[in-house]
Design a protein around this nucleic acid. Structure first.
Lengths: 357, 357
DNA sequence: TCGTATTGGGAAAGCGCATTCCCACTTCTT
DNA sequence: AAGAAGTGGGAATGCGCTTTCCCAATACGA
């Protein structure tokens, strides 16, 4: 038994497919009440479910929102995804998910796939890369997005515009003030932390990471502090752990042999919470304690990580809201309010992990 | 400028649409090399992207996999989603996401929506409910799934079969041995824990929760221990916290006033990690320490929570693998190996949180 | 009363593609 | 060398739906 079609419903109800279509799937013209009832009854006696593909083909709009993330299991993206999902529901659309690991080439594929499915809009989350090795892929991604936009697609990207994408109609950027916030964090930290600062960053060229590093250094400078040393590693827990190990060795190297590290305590800023947690784990594994032996701060304020002890100082970002806003920005009706910059604000949240002993 | 169509490509290449279709979108018949090249060239000079909707309509299959979860931001589901996503990629399909908060009525909606989009298969993660209030919705969900299956859809459900769904062709269940594992956890815990056990469970009728509770009690019984008291609350962190507060009061109630709780220490089993973390946070907020004042164990071994201190004893579940297997089970080719039960195995993982002082 | 709007339903033409059938042509077979 | 088998391309149909256009029937004003 194949799914029943509109035509079958129409036949059962004794009307034309056109009429059936009009009553079942919202149309401007509303057929008479009696006829409508007959059709509706026929429809659910047959268990009719409209074929969205056919509908999409006919009115060239699919009711789909494409979401591109690096990794859906990363709580950062998961939180954004929840927001997107919520907004999608408001718009009565479904979300199509693509995970790319952050590679521009994959992102381009995803955009093409979304375009193929005639997704009404695309939301791209996740850091952009400005590495030279990604340059070509970025260009292709930009081209793909361009074409998608020109064909009436709407796209919103979280954080930075795609490198090389021309600002276009239907192209929105939800700007996240990474730099400012990192600066604010540095300022607050500098206010009651006398020691050196070290930054654990992602690979060079990861815009989000670079912005946060940059902002942090700026904040330090404004506070009259020397710039922090920068350790680069991968943008995830493993990267944080690895960097943490290095720092632990250094901290212990200055030890006086009493088991107590010597020298001024170090304050570590990891460019995201997950890395910070990794670094903290490494320190702990090396027998160091936080904040006794070193302070540590992250960025994002991931919900799942809030129960971590010592509580992590970080910058709270309204991730879910970001997802929601990005999605709403792509809603057709949002267009008239035009590209009013929806301002995302975060908040420096100091907790136990950076308390001076 | 609208997206270019196959016909336009064909015209540019000077061939018929049929030929163009054959060369561009895999067909059994391969046109001559020279013609193929011409077509391909025309295609990418026009930036042709096949319209997946039209393709789907024509061959009635969409290349879509529907995934139903309670909440994508819950790390449990996020992990499963990652597995699904991976498997989908293997099958060169995209995943369509629906979040339902666990309500059977919403799940039914989601299935209908997936059916409308002609998703090739549906993966349902998340606990089933057997509550009487959900009975009706469950029946409707089952009916919807039934219909979907009869129309050639394939579905896999993680954990328990949907209540009332008839075992059918194309209907797979990825069974998770919650009960056995909970029993094994109880056994191990009982082996070196003399005090009382308390279970923090989800609402009654949540099958996953009930199974874990049941299995735990069984394990206790086999070890010759009295059954544990059961506290019910919601299946998330907040629920765990709430229950933890109650338990904290109880623990402190027995206090001798020295700040040290008196009486035999209590071992808490929360039916999932997130609840366990919530409970632990509550105890800590009340000034209690783990495992000094109480032991606590969870279930799932959520990756993000592994850095939590004291390290949480739990049952490791291969969440990602579960998602992968569920998705693969719905792959057409997986059908010939028939419904060979893919056995999921977990592992009791004892860590610091249940160490006797 | 006739003629003009207006309403309400049906017929038909796509939407963009896959695919079946058909036809012209080449390559073996005996 | 003539017919059979095979090859490679095009015409046409249909997937299930929306929508424009058309037509009959009713409503209205003069």
């Amino acid at each position: 038994m194949a799914a029943s079609t509109l035509t079958e419903v129409a036949r059962l109800a004794g009307v034309s497919p056109a009429t059936a279509s009009r009553v079942l799937n919202g149309s401007a013209r509303k057929p008479g009440k009696d006829i409508a009832d007959r059709v509706r009854q026929a429809a659910d006696s047959l268990g009719y479910i409209p074929n969205a593909q056919a509908q999409g083909l006919a009115k060239s709009s699919s009711g789909l929102i494409g979401l591109i993330v690096h990794d859906i299991a990363d709580p950062y993206f998961a939180a954004i995804a929840r927001g997107v999902q919520e907004a999608a529901r408001e718009q009565r659309k479904m979300v199509l998910l693509a995970t790319t690991g952050g590679a521009p080439a994959e992102e381009k594929e995803a955009v093409a796939a979304f375009a193929a499915r005639r997704a009404d809009s695309i939301v791209i989350a996740g850091s952009r890369s400005s590495r030279t090795e990604d340059q070509e892929d970025n260009a292709e991604l930009a081209a793909e997005l361009d074409r998608y936009c020109r064909n009436g697609g709407r796209v919103a990207v979280v954080g930075h515009p795609v490198v090389g994408a021309s600002a276009q109609d239907g192209y929105h950027v939800v700007a996240v003030p990474n730099q400012e916030l990192a600066g604010a964090l540095a300022a607050k930290l500098a206010a009651h932390w006398g020691g050196d600062f070290v930054i654990i960053g992602g690979p060079e060229g990861l815009l989000t990471s670079d912005d946060r590093i940059h902002g942090f250094q700026e904040g330090l400078a404004k506070a009259g502090r020397a710039p922090a040393e920068i350790l680069r590693s991968s943008f995830n827990r493993a990267g944080g752990y690895e960097a943490g190990l290095k720092l632990a060795a250094r901290i212990k190297g200055g030890s006086t042999g009493t088991g107590e590290p010597a020298g001024p305590k170090m304050c570590i800023f990891a460019v995201n919470d997950v890395m910070a947690i990794g670094a903290a784990a490494a320190l702990r594994a090396e027998g160091l304690r936080i904040p006794r032996d070193a302070a540590i701060a992250g960025f994002d304020d991931i919900e799942t990580l809030r129960d971590f002890r010592p509580a992590l100082s970080t910058v709270s970002l309204p991730l879910e809201e970001i997802g929601r806003l990005a999605t709403r920005a792509t809603a057709p009706l949002a267009g008239d309010g035009d590209s009013a910059p929806q301002p995302i604000t975060g908040e420096v949240t100091l907790r136990r992990s950076t308390e001076a002993a």
